[in-house]
Deep mutational scan, measured.
Amino acid sequence: RLIESLSQMLSMGFSDEGGWLTRLLQTKNYDIGAALDTIQ
């Protein structure tokens, strides 16, 4: 599930440099909407 969510976020133009996006998705239970809300 992480790989699916991460690949979708990467395709939106986000980077996972340093693993920050992986950690964010894990804390949000791989919910892309919740991750995007946090980023904004």
Rank of each mutant, 00 (worst) to 15 (best):
L10S: 07
D37K: 14
T27Q: 15
Y30P: 04
I3A: 12
E4N: 10
F14I: 05
D37S: 14
E4A: 06
D16I: 06
G13M: 02
L36I: 12
W20I: 02
A34M: 09
N29Q: 09
Q40K: 14
L25A: 01
D31E: 09
M9W: 05
S5H: 03
E17K: 07
L10V: 11
R1F: 11
W20P: 00
M12N: 04
S7K: 15
L2Q: 08
E17Y: 12
S15N: 13
S15V: 12
N29A: 10
G18Y: 09
F14H: 05
R1W: 11
D31Y: 06
D31M: 07
Q26E: 15
L24K: 00
S5W: 10
I32V: 14
M12E: 04
L36A: 05
S15K: 11
M9Y: 02
Q40G: 13
A34T: 06
L25T: 03
D31V: 05
G33D: 13
L2G: 05
Q8M: 13
I39F: 05
Q8L: 15
Y30D: 02
L36P: 03
G18N: 12
E17N: 12
D31R: 01
Q8T: 13
I3E: 15
M12Y: 06
S11F: 08
A34N: 07
W20N: 01
G18L: 13
G33S: 13
E4W: 03
S11D: 09
T27I: 14
W20E: 05
G19E: 08
A34H: 09
R1T: 13
G33H: 14
I32K: 04
K28V: 15
R1G: 11
L24M: 06
I39P: 04
L21A: 01
T38W: 15
E17R: 08
G18C: 14
G13A: 04
M12R: 05
R1D: 13
R23Q: 15
F14W: 08
S11E: 12
G13K: 01
A35P: 01
D31N: 11
Q8W: 11
Q40N: 15
I39A: 04
T22F: 02
E4L: 11
M9I: 07
I3R: 15
A35S: 08
R23S: 06
S5Y: 03
L24D: 02
R1V: 11
I32M: 06
Q40W: 12
M9L: 12
S5I: 09
I39Q: 01
Q26I: 15
L10R: 05
F14K: 03
A35V: 15
L10M: 10
K28G: 06
S11T: 10
G18T: 07
G18P: 03
Q8P: 01
Q40D: 10
L10T: 06
L6P: 00
S7H: 15
Q40L: 15
N29H: 08
M9T: 01
L25N: 03
L25D: 04
S7I: 13
A35G: 02
L24Q: 01
L10Q: 09
Q26L: 13
A34P: 05
F14Y: 14
K28R: 05
G18A: 07
T27L: 14
D16G: 01
I32G: 00
G18K: 08
G19H: 04
I39T: 04
L2I: 07
G33Y: 15
D37E: 15
F14E: 01
E17W: 10
T38R: 06
L36W: 08
F14V: 03
S7G: 09
S7Q: 13
Q8F: 13
I39V: 07
D31I: 09
M9G: 01
K28D: 03
S11Q: 13
N29G: 10
Y30W: 07
L25R: 00
L25E: 02
T27S: 12
L10F: 12
D16Q: 05
R1S: 11
L24E: 03
A35R: 01
D31A: 07
L36M: 09
L6T: 02
T22R: 11
D37L: 13
D16E: 05
L2D: 08
G13V: 07
D16A: 08
R23G: 07
T27A: 13
T38G: 08
E4P: 07
G18Q: 07
S15R: 10
W20T: 03
F14G: 02
F14T: 03
N29R: 05
S11M: 14
S15G: 06
T38E: 14
M12W: 09
L21P: 00
S7T: 12
R23I: 14
L21G: 01
L2M: 08
R1I: 13
K28H: 15
T22Y: 04
T27G: 11
W20K: 03
M9A: 03
I32R: 02
K28F: 13
M9C: 12
L6E: 00
Y30M: 03
S15A: 09
E4R: 07
D37M: 11
L24S: 00
D37R: 12
T27N: 15
R1Q: 12
T38I: 14
I39H: 04
R23F: 13
A35H: 03
T27E: 15
S11H: 09
D37A: 14
T22K: 05
G13E: 04
W20Q: 00
L2E: 10
L21M: 11
L25K: 02
S15D: 15
E4Y: 09
L36S: 05
W20D: 04
M9K: 01
S11N: 09
E4S: 12
Y30H: 06
